[in-house]
Computed example of a mutant assay.
Amino acid sequence: MNLTEARAALRNAKKVAVLTGAGISAESGIPTFRDAQTGHWARFRPEDLASPPAYARDPEMVWEWYAGRYRDVLRAEPNDGHRLLARLEQEKGDGFFLATQNVDGLHARAGSKRLVELHGNLLSARDEKTGEIFLLATPDELVTPPTSPNGNRMRPNVVWFGEFLPEDALEAAQDAFAAADVALVIGTSGVVYPAAGLALETLRRGGTVIEVNPDETELTPYMSFSLREKASLGLAELLGD
């Protein structure tokens, strides 16, 4: 498949499923999880900052880490990649589905609605007793660890090492990719499962899978077509902008 054929496949598709990873938000200045481990945080292993045992051991330290990432995310703005996907959703309507591995909320801020956040969202926290999700206070007003309106301590609303993805979100994504005529895999390394396996569902059902990534990934050998561009430029090429 070449670029012209990929454009035609996407244009004619009735059902489109999209998976995005850290690469699409990099253009908005959002560092990856490990890239954010600079300065004071560089001496910690990821599991020391993002796992149930770490949180049980030192919730104040874990929240200090996440409060910093929360502030970074709020300073960022959606980029052309986010906006182009929101436009594609408008064009495809109910035939569009977006699953993201990112926790920055930028897709929603760009206008995406048919969306699941497989790894959670940094802008919210979860009541440790009831499981209810609440938006965090503004950075100036945020006290960590935060307390829910129920009076209970809250934990970051993200999926940690050793935890399962939200079952409803994962099932919705699996169904969408299995039904898709075309799947787009954008800015993800393809090493984190089960999210990385979603595109293979599309291939197994005879669909087309298009990768947008400046680098080869572990998924590249299976792709129908790979576009070696960053997210915003690759999407612009696919959509004919």
Rank of each mutant, 00 (worst) to 15 (best):
P221V: 09
N152S: 06
L3V: 09
A8I: 00
A173M: 06
D215E: 15
A13C: 13
P156C: 08
L88P: 00
Y66I: 02
N102V: 05
P53M: 11
G111V: 00
G21I: 00
G240F: 00
I133S: 02
M223V: 10
A6T: 10
D72T: 14
L74R: 07
Q90C: 05
A169L: 05
G131W: 08
M223S: 05
D215G: 10
M154A: 10
E64L: 06
L235M: 08
P59I: 02
L165H: 04
G131T: 08
A173Q: 02
D104T: 10
D241M: 14
F164T: 13
A8L: 13
R43Q: 15
G120F: 05
L233Y: 14
A8W: 01
G240S: 08
E216G: 14
L10S: 07
D215F: 12
K129C: 03
A176W: 00
N157P: 06
D80S: 13
G93Y: 04
T217N: 05
D72M: 14
G29P: 13
V159S: 09
V103K: 03
F33D: 03
P145N: 13
T130I: 00
F97T: 02
E132H: 14
D72C: 03
L115V: 03
T32R: 13
H119M: 09
L74K: 07
T4Q: 15
T147W: 07
G190V: 03
A172R: 15
H107I: 03
R109Y: 08
L239K: 02
L88T: 06
P139V: 11
P78Y: 05
K129S: 13
V192W: 07
A169P: 06
A180S: 15
H119D: 12
R83K: 15
A199P: 02
H119R: 14
E64V: 00
P78N: 07
D104P: 04
T217Y: 01
G234F: 03
A172G: 01
S51Y: 05
G162W: 08
A76W: 09
F33G: 08
A108K: 12
A125E: 05
R126G: 01
G95M: 00
S226P: 10
E64W: 05
A99E: 08
V209Y: 02
K230G: 06
K113Q: 15
A173H: 06
E117N: 13
L239N: 12
A86M: 01
A67G: 13
R126Y: 01
I30M: 11
G197D: 13
D35C: 01
P46T: 12
L19N: 09
S112L: 09
L198M: 12
F225S: 01
V73Q: 04
P214L: 02
T147D: 04
G39S: 10
N157I: 01
L74Q: 04
R205M: 10
R155F: 00
T4Y: 09
L239T: 09
L165R: 06
F44A: 05
